[in-house]
Design a protein around this nucleic acid. Sequence first.
DNA 1: ACCTTTGTTGAACGTTCGCTAAACAAAGGG
DNA 2: CCCTTTGTTTAGCGAACGTTCAACAAAGGT
Lengths: 193, 193
Amino acid sequence: MAVFRRRGFARTSIRDLAEATGLHPGSLYQAYGSKEGLFAAAVTTYNELVVEHRVRTHLDEAEPPLRGIDTFFASTFDDDGDDDSAADGPNPGCLLTNTAVEAHLLPGTSRDGVAAGLNLIEQGFQRVLERARQAGQINPTAATDQLAAQLLALYQGVLVLVRFGAPTTKLAAIVAHAVPAIIASGHHAEGST
Amino acid sequence: MAVFRRRGFARTSIRDLAEATGLHPGSLYQAYGSKEGLFAAAVTTYNELVVEHRVRTHLDEAEPPLRGIDTFFASTFDDDGDDDSAADGPNPGCLLTNTAVEAHLLPGTSRDGVAAGLNLIEQGFQRVLERARQAGQINPTAATDQLAAQLLALYQGVLVLVRFGAPTTKLAAIVAHAVPAIIASGHHAEGST
DNA sequence: ACCTTTGTTGAACGTTCGCTAAACAAAGGG
DNA sequence: CCCTTTGTTTAGCGAACGTTCAACAAAGGT
């Protein structure tokens, strides 16, 4: 899973995967049927182990709710993220983002996995925005589904820049301003009505 | 160039490129030295033919200035973009975005090309924001360099979702709300001071 | 016309790829 | 214990890969 995250599907060979898993090619084929099957399983596992965990930690359990959004973004480029990010070398970004740009060249199972992962994130954004609303942190009439979609787009963009190695200070500034701007647009637009 | 954009570096073979260019492998090697050299040249050409053109059309020449930002975003998923986008099949997104997530596995020349392209876009955003400021469309004290960085991140995220095949209506809604929210944050933050 | 330089072609090289199947090992059941 | 089933290993297959180079063609100069 980590190897796919760093190298992408096309550049990761079965031999790379054999080495990373400690299993030999025959076993991998026995278990997953093909390289694509293995990849789809890796995406699913990534969603379960990484995405769900991050969504739960930062979006479902953080207090105050809006603080969780900040840390969700910041943890993509801080060194306190998931295990893979702590490893030496360039930040691997997010398997979903890295895969999204090549997903149309993969079978539908991998694409469905990416879609599921993106949906986890978007729904997580929406839930935390609902919590923020109930906590009086944002306007009661803010369209949280719309805000969640916007945050997802921004999040993907930040991940691209993270992956490309943009300076951490720049990323932090982007997040510090753009996230509140988007969230506040619920306030602002309604406030001026 | 178009093949790289659709398939990425790793998945594009020299034979693909020979077919696309009409030149044989030996000629490609004579001219570019290696597959990586060819790729770096493709990124440079993409910046010159596609990115510069888009930046000039939408950001440098559009009136009113803020309208240009809208069309710059919208043309990533409308069918009236550059020639490649008009072709049949999934939207190829942006070569820079697609490359950014694998750039650390490529030589520095390609990475420099991606950095140059991203910079073209960011500087284009900043120039159009300056124009908007002079036209009285945004707050005179807005930090246009900061806004430009935020717009670049959002733009990259939109491109990821475009590439992944997100519904056009969803993308349009994201752009319609998030872009003005970010731009208005110059207004809003200063307005409340 | 002939020679030199530049550019192109096409076959083939060594390497790597995804994948397979026979051989082997481990686990389970009677 | 023996047999069957399941899982693993390992060598090797055919195909594809990036790249090279001898042969050929085209362009330029005298």
